[in-house]
Write a protein that binds this DNA or RNA. Structure first.
Length: 366
DNA sequence: AACTAGAGCAACCGCCAGAGG
DNA sequence: ACCTCTGGCGGTTGCTCTAGT
């Protein structure tokens, strides 16, 4: 049979750790090191599960941990990494010396998500909210039968309280703010970078090269899109992601001139399973890429330790890769911006009028 | 001063892949 | 070969603190 269980789970202490327990665990780890956590409680004289000891050590007692607040640089780095790889907290934390995945996760959930929401950026997709609504319109034949077509996930939203017009005095931006986008349809998890700017790891050039090599096809929706004016194939300065200029332009909705069918696009996935070795190759290349100007303060020198399977199989990475390519294409199509923007603004106004007529009196300055 | 709601955070839960017996 | 455990991870819960009324 298998190994014996590490502890009697019904008989171990749970809940907050006391200073005495911390001291015992510290003494034990400093004496024996971190190895087999199942024996740590016994050696330390703790009535705790080994798993609990490991967590306590990893998230709190480790001597290299920082316990102060996150710096603006760290904050920006988290946002960039989340945009690139999604909620892979352990990977993100590895790029932030002294921070744990739990720290980063908590900081994201309590601060950064709200911060992005407040300025009209969807913290899940990093897209402007208006663009998400536009995408929904394309999917669901909005605005004819809004309630019926959003599906069960979207219906969870309390639209009357979730979407509100806001005006951010610090940035001068107005638009729709919302909360709880996590509850929306999972399709939103397919991330789109076409309207935001800061991409770590030098993703863009590599994906551009890949797309040229493989003729990776993208839906016309994306090739028609115009990105924010602060987009760049090289990563902009740290503050750009949240800069007023970025937000103002990010508010520009970018629908295609012809209706785009998300269902068709999702079925036609250039990164289908057959391409997984390619994805792995590319992603590993990206992780090793020295061109990562957004990572400062010595962070970029750290190796990005990532198991290939965990990155490639499922999760947001597939969509990330795909949409990073979209970003590149979109970035290169910024000519005739003004007329396009006019068209966009017209369509966006129509959409809002249909969706939120009560908000028309609010200010929406683009 | 007492109560309430929300924010922040530590810890737990449950799942998964890999490894041990 | 099979079963079970470990270690790691992301998601969630619940406790504590604080600000507002």
């Amino acid at each position: 049979m298998g190994r014996p269980p590490c502890c009697d789970k019904s008989n171990v202490k749970r809940g907050l750790w006391t200073a005495a327990e911390d001291a015992k665990l510290l003494a034990c780890v400093s004496k024996h090191g971190v190895g087999n956590w199942t024996v740590v409680p016994k050696k330390a004289g703790l009535n705790r599960c080994g798993k609990s000891c490991r967590l306590r050590w990893t998230n709190y007692l480790r001597p290299d941990l920082k316990h102060d607040t996150f710096t603006p640089e760290e904050e920006e780095h988290i946002i960039n990494l989340h945009k690139a790889i999604g909620s892979r907290w352990s990977l993100i934390a590895k790029q932030l010396p002294g921070r744990t995945d739990n720290d980063v996760k908590n900081y994201w959930n309590t601060k950064l998500k709200k911060k992005l929401s407040k300025i009209g950026i969807d913290p899940v997709t990093h897209k402007p909210i208006s663009q998400i609504l536009s995408d929904y319109g394309n999917i669901t034949s909005l605005p004819k039968h809004i309630g019926n077509h959003f599906g069960p996930s979207f219906n969870k939203l309390n639209m009357s309280t979730t979407f509100v017009p806001v005006s951010d005095p610090s940035s001068g931006i107005t638009g729709l703010a919302y909360t709880n986008m996590m509850m929306m349809n999972p399709i939103m998890e397919s991330q789109d970078y076409s309207s935001t700017s800061t991409l770590p790891f030098g993703f863009l050039s590599q994906f551009q090269a890949m797309n040229q090599d493989d003729n990776v096809s993208l839906p016309p929706h994306f090739s028609n899109e115009v990105t924010s004016s602060c987009s760049s194939s090289s990563s902009p300065p740290a503050t750009d992601l949240l800069s007023p200029q970025c937000h103002a332009s990010a508010q520009v909705v970018t629908p295609s001139s012809s209706p785009f069918n998300w269902s068709e696009f999702l079925l036609h996935d250039p990164f289908s399973s057959a391409d997984q070795p390619k994805q792995e190759e590319v992603f590993q290349g990206l992780l090793a890429s020295p061109a990562n100007p957004t990572v400062g303060n010595g962070i970029q020198s750290q190796a990005f330790e990532v198991g290939s399977s965990s990155v490639i199989n499922g999760g947001p990475s597939l969509n990330n890769n795909k949409n990073l390519a979209n970003d590149q294409i979109a970035s290169s199509s910024s000519s005739s911006l003004s007329s396009f923007v006019d068209t966009i603004l017209g369509q966006d106004s129509e959409m809002r009028a249909a969706l939120f007529p009560e908000l028309l009196d609010g200010c929406f300055d683009y």
